[in-house]
């Protein structure tokens, strides 16, 4: 049935230390997938490495943030007619060997969006207590606002079908987009499914969510979810 391979979207911001590992792993071990690296305007050697190694990559001239980078991937997927797109992190936290599990529900039509979740089976790398509490709060908020229960709302390991490739190419949130993207999915009536995955610890570098930013993160995401929910209410009338 599948006319094309699934596309792996790899947003990369200052990932010169990890990008080679991530890309070579896909090229050598998983030829059944296509991939696109989106260099999010990093000033380090990320773009240079991609050029030298002849990777399939898009080079954003300025830094847009993770949302803008991932959206570029969805736009690329849309223009090139992909049926399934999977976004993973550029830091090697997400194991490509788990990808088949994540796209399986899309292939058999069970879901429009599949999220690879750390929390269902509690295996592999978990995160700090404070972060887990924050994720739990957001998960509860999204449950109240959209009626969808998702545990790992901040997971960046997610697969979408062609319908949501179009939707996300048009409309993808900006700053810390993962929880908000779920609300966008709910507004558009997408079927969301969560599958357990095992996550690796970061190879190197720091996570994009730093301690001093986490308060801002929580407030911003909470507001974004509530506003999304309000506009959903208007749309229904």
């Amino acid at each position: 049935m599948e006319s094309k391979k699934p596309l792996i979207i790899i947003p990369a911001y200052k990932e010169e230390a990890n990008i080679e590992f991530v890309a070579d792993n896909i090229i050598n071990n998983y030829p059944q997938y296509d991939y696109i690296i989106v260099n999010d305007g990093s000033k380090d050697n990320t773009a240079k490495i991609c050029r030298e190694r002849n990777y399939n990559f898009c080079d954003l001239p300025i830094n847009l943030g993770i949302g803008g980078a991932v959206q570029t991937g969805y736009k690329y997927a849309e223009r090139n007619g992909y049926d399934i797109a999977v976004q993973i992190d550029g830091d090697g936290q997400h194991d490509v060997s788990q990808l088949e599990k994540v796209i399986a529900p899309i292939k058999n039509g069970e879901a429009d969006i599949v999220i690879g979740s750390r929390f269902i089976t509690k295996a592999g790398f978990q995160s700090s207590k404070a972060r887990r509490a924050g994720i739990k709060f957001l998960s509860g908020l999204i449950h109240i606002c959209t009626g969808k229960k998702v545990f790992d709302v901040t997971s960046g390991y997610r697969a979408v079908n062609s319908r949501f490739i179009h939707i996300y190419a048009e409309n993808y949130p900006n700053d810390y987009p993962e929880p908000e993207a779920l609300v966008v999915a709910a507004i558009n009536g997408g079927k969301v499914k969560e599958v357990p995955i095992i996550m690796n610890e970061r190879k190197s570098g720091t996570s994009s969510i730093r301690a001093w930013k986490s308060v801002y993160y929580m407030i911003k995401v909470t507001l974004a979810i509530i506003i999304c929910r309000i506009s959903l209410g208007i749309r229904r009338q």
């Binding site: 898009c58 954003l60 847009l64 803008g68 959206q71 570029t72 900006n174």
Partner: peptide
Amino acid sequence: RTLVQENAMLEK
């Protein structure tokens, strides 16, 4: 944002 994305895809 849209311009940057289009530019990057064109560059590719």
